Simulated assay, not measured.
Amino acid sequence: MSAFHALGRSARKVVVLIVGVAVVIAGVVLLAAPGPGVLVIIGGLVILATEFAWAQRWLDYVVERAAGATTKVQGSRSGRIMLALSGLALIAAGVVVIVFFSQWIVAGISLIVAGLIGLCTLVPKVQDWIAEKSITGIDDTDDVH
């Protein structure tokens, strides 16, 4: 391996680390603010997992836990009703934010996306996939560099 190639590989790792950690931190902030925090955290871990094996292990853990929690909520009629109502409420809140507070358009869009994601968890095929992930975790056959 040439020195140039090694330097490029190291630079890539640093960039992935910086971007991935920034996305994870944004996800943690979104846990307290309106927005899909868990999904953003998962996105940051996906970025980090392209270069770091430890991030792949954390990604597996977070996806399994999130899927397990979702499966529990989906398991009851009242849980499904609450998912539907919260999804619709997030969408409505996002529209209100966009219409009345145009300077907060990103927050409004985040609310709408979070609501849509919540509603997607009510789709039977999505529920089956989530149930599978809550039992088995994500596919460990992916190669991490």
Rank of each mutant, 00 (worst) to 15 (best):
E64D: 01
L48Q: 11
L88Q: 02
T70E: 09
W58L: 14
P36W: 09
V40W: 06
F52N: 08
R80G: 05
R80Q: 14
E64P: 00
S86N: 13
Q74C: 09
A93L: 15
R57T: 12
A84I: 01
A89E: 04
T71R: 11
K72D: 08
L31N: 04
A67E: 01
I91N: 04
V28G: 03
L90R: 02
V29L: 14
G75S: 13
A93W: 15
V28L: 13
K72L: 10
S86D: 08
G43D: 07
R65E: 11
V96S: 08
A93I: 09
E51M: 13
G27C: 08
G35P: 10
A66W: 01
R80T: 08
M82Y: 09
Q74P: 00
A84G: 11
V29K: 00
A32V: 13
L48K: 11
G87T: 00
A33S: 10
G94K: 06
A55D: 09
L90I: 00
G68M: 04
I41S: 01
G75V: 03
F52M: 11
L48V: 07
V73W: 09
G87A: 04
I41H: 03
P36A: 13
I81Y: 08
V95P: 01
S86W: 15
G43Y: 03
I81S: 04
V46L: 15
A69I: 14
S76A: 06
S78R: 14
R65F: 14
G37L: 03
A92M: 07
V62C: 05
K72V: 10
E51A: 15
A33C: 05
G44D: 08
A93H: 12
A93G: 11
A93S: 13
G68Q: 10
A55W: 01
G37F: 12
A49P: 00
A66D: 02
V40G: 01
E51S: 15
V29M: 12
D60A: 07
T71L: 05
R77W: 14
L30G: 05
V96K: 07
G79C: 03
V40K: 00
K72W: 07
